[in-house]
Design a protein around this nucleic acid. Structure first.
Lengths: 135, 135
DNA sequence: TATTGTTATACTCTATAACTATA
DNA sequence: TATAGTTATAGAGTATAACAATA
């Protein structure tokens, strides 16, 4: 049941992201940086369930677009501190608002009590460490 | 929230499927055939959200393993009627039982009311035509 | 020697376009 | 001419391994 739902939700996000000039991974990265920045790209990649080599092109694009900054950690010049810029925060909020507007429309299909429980359950399950699910 | 949950659930299914000698798509096809067989492979592919060319190798494997039959429709010799064999049904039930046992364990994290509402909401949303979600 | 970020390479998946056989 | 199934090819996405800089 989750698979077709996710497929449809991704399809719904696509035109919104395109309108904002963002890739799916770009949005995922910005979402991960929302709130707290991150000390290493490796940690960022692991957090979003991607390989460290996979996000480099994404970070390049986001940096070129002025949506985030990569600054070397003076204490360990190997590491690159990654943080959103103000423009990145604005962009992320705008995209998120567009996406959530559509999600609201979809969630309106549920009766209010189920909707609350659904989101609560989803939050609980998605926050579990993957090993708790794989066993 | 759905993306990481699905990733973890797929990771959990992988060893179970491997133990039964089934691929992910193989399991999806068997699940789709559970209950009613299908008159054409194209319809089957569309039903599971795949391209018709993508499931051919899967159908070959399942047929070679004796889990399904492909018989030509006498009324239209282009079409191939696809149906599970008894062994296919047994295999599907066995795999499904293993997978659901793990899902039960995960769902036990939710309190019973949320769990019921979660499954009900998921059934509602996953049954929507994709266009209802994309808008 | 180990780790961070990067690049290069290979591999897997998937989509698209031909091809056949039937209609 | 159109459709069902199949095959072949190309493209995207992903993982793996090698590399340079720093620790």
């Amino acid at each position: 049941m989750i698979a077709p739902l996710q497929r449809a939700l991704i399809a719904a996000e696509q035109p919104v992201l395109r309108a904002h000039g963002l890739s799916m991974w770009g949005y995922v990265v910005l979402s991960a940086l929302d709130g707290q920045p991150v000390r290493t790209q490796t940690a960022l990649a692991e957090f979003i369930g991607a390989d460290k080599s996979r996000i480099i092109g994404v970070l390049d694009e986001l940096e070129n677009a002025g949506l985030l900054d990569r600054t070397r950690d003076p204490a360990d010049r190997r590491a690159r501190f990654v943080a959103m810029t103000d423009e990145g925060r604005r962009k992320h909020r705008a995209v998120q608002a567009d996406i959530q507007r559509n999600e609201e429309r979809v969630l309106a299909r549920l009766d209010p009590a189920d909707r609350e429980a659904f989101l609560r359950a989803l939050a609980t399950l998605s926050a579990l460490p993957p090993t708790d699910i794989t066993g």
